[in-house]
Structures are given as structure tokens and as C-alpha cells.
Nucleic acid binder design. Structure first.
Lengths: 154, 154
DNA sequence: TATAATCACGACCAACTTGATCGGGATTCA
DNA sequence: TGAATCCCGATCAAGTTGGTCGTGATTATA
């Protein structure tokens, strides 16, 4: 999974709305400023998220956006899948965007990619906005040392 | 991590060479046919891998390619990093391709992406060609049910 | 009711990446 | 000599990314 700017910006915006949950709308301009996002680009993204029913807009002066549902009803998985289309590292191990591959029966490394898919999928679908916001989504790898680095660097 | 065709093809070719390890060279044409890879495209990739000292070439008629080192001295991590540049889902959690981000101090979801980075990095750097070839790289997620699917699909 | 701030919508676009193809040269074996 | 191979650089079409821009429509407030 490679996170696009769009997913990145969408998540930044959503967490800003989570932070303000129950306290009225925030304008695109303010979200953009607080999160260092190009304003006109964020416009697109917010409208997109509105059509997905993740946010609601209030038009006119003093208008802006609020979350359309509770922060534990939206997951990072949903957001990234919407904007980036696929979480799996390759489509032959994707269920939502599966495409057949002539080598599937003999491929030696498919298994490794499948493992990555499973891990990423599980993690992202567990990651509701509220859990991530409160830091409740810490996993095995981070229990011992938060800044632990594996392998040669990534 | 999104696996590019180049990485994919490179890995297919390498595992073909592993299969034939110690039994003479295989031509690009044959590797291409056996793995369903465009021949002229594979040429580039093999030359690239030659410069990385992963494979050696034998020129002239009956020539071809062989592995330049033992299958347990090459990892999937090295290959994917070479062709795709970055394993991490976003550069702010990459060590090899780190780029600063204005939101780093306040970002709510960086932690989740860091977790993915750690998992992928560890898995890929453990994945030597020989271990993957023999199937010795099965991990937690796959111990119980090989085709287990998590979340909404990926 | 004028005005300023906001959301809404669609068109446009430059730069980059991906996934190749192509022509022709150098090397080697039979 | 010729056939099969590796070698090298140029080129390129299509799609994706990451935006910008102009212009309406809506609404609170002075």
C-alpha cells in the first residue's frame, strides 16, 4: 500500500473533525491551514467525502464541515480504499480488486504478499478514527519500543 | 508498498534462476516465456540486476543468466527496494527515503503507518530467496488458515 | 438588502511514472 | 559464416498524481 496525498489529506481533515466532534463546523480554509493542505485541493476531497457520507457540510457564511457519523463508524481502511483503490501490494492477492495472474499456481512469493495483505487489511479495518485518535490501536510491534526499526530501513 | 511490474518480473526471474541454481545459464527468452514477461522488457531488468551483482550473464550462443550469489544472500526486500525505491507506505515513516512532514508532531495516524512499515520491512528482509523458495517464510497470519481473509477485503 | 464568507461543481493541466518497444551492436559456439 | 545470445541507449504512449481556476449557489450578519 502506498498512501497517496489524497488519502493523507483526507485523514488529516477527518482527524481535525474528530478533534472538534460535537462542537460545530470547521471551514475548509481552516482545515487546510491547520493541516498544511492546498485549499482548492482539499475542496475536492471534502466534497468527495461528503458524497461518501463521512462528513456533512453547512453552507453559507460560518459554514463548514462536521463528521456525519460517529468516529468509531469510520475506519482508515475505508478511507484509504476509497481514495487509493487497493490496499494489497499486488492485485493477485486482493479480494476487492482481484485480477487473475498466469503465474498464480506456481508463483513462489505470492504467499509473502498475501501475508502483507492480511496484516495491512486487518490493521486498517481495526483502525477506527476514534481508536486511532485516542492511541488505542498500538500493536505488537510497538509494545516494546515505539521507534523500533527492523531490517535495513524501509 | 505497491509492487511494480518491474519488481514482480524481477522476482519471477530470480526464482526461475533459483530453481535452476547450479545447473547452467537460462536465456532471457526462456525466462520470459516461462514467466509470461515481455522479452525486451525483461532484458532491461536482467541487465539492471546484473549491475547489482545479483545475477551474472554468459554471452554468446547458449548464453544466458545465472545467480551471482547464493539464494540465501538475496532478499525480497533488497529487490523491491531497488526497483520500487520505498517499502514504507509514506515517506515520513521511511528510514531509507525519509522526508520531513510539517504535521509529524501532531499526526494522529503516523503510528499506524509506522506499524505497517515495521511489519513489511521485517517480513521482506527475512525473505531470502531460498527461504521463500522452500516455503520456510510462513508467518503468524498464515499458520492457522492459509487463505484466511481479514476485514473487508483488500 | 448588500456584502462577505462559505460550500459546490466542473473543466483544465503540467509533470511524472509506468511499462513497455525498437534498432542495432558485441560476443560466442558449432 | 551464421545463428543465438547478451548489451545499450533512445524513444514513447497512456495513465496517474497533484494540483489550479472560474464561477455559481447559499447563508449569517451589519
Amino acid at each position: 500500500m502506498k498512501l497517496s496525498r489524497k488519502s493523507d489529506y483526507a485523514l488529516r481533515a477527518l482527524f481535525t473533525l474528530v478533534e472538534n466532534y460535537g462542537r460545530g463546523p470547521i471551514s475548509i480554509r481552516e482545515i487546510a491551514e491547520r493541516n498544511d493542505i492546498p485549499r482548492r485541493f482539499l475542496e475536492q476531497i471534502m466534497l468527495d467525502m461528503k458524497s461518501r457520507k463521512w462528513v456533512e457540510s453547512i453552507a453559507g457564511r460560518d459554514g463548514g464541515f462536521i463528521l456525519a457519523k460517529s468516529p468509531d463508524e469510520i475506519t482508515m481502511g475505508q478511507v484509504v480504499r476509497h481514495f487509493d483503490g487497493i490496499l494489497a501490494p499486488i492485485s493477485c492477492v486482493s479480494t476487492s480488486h482481484y485480477e487473475p495472474c498466469s503465474q498464480e499456481g506456481v508463483c513462489r512469493f505470492r504467499r509473502v504478499l498475501l501475508d502483507i495483505r492480511n496484516y495491512v487489511s486487518r490493521l486498517m479495518d481495526d483502525a477506527t478514527l476514534s481508536r486511532v485518535f485516542t492511541g488505542a490501536i498500538v500493536r505488537r510491534e510497538e509494545v516494546f519500543s515505539p521507534d523500533m526499526v527492523y531490517g535495513e530501513g524501509i
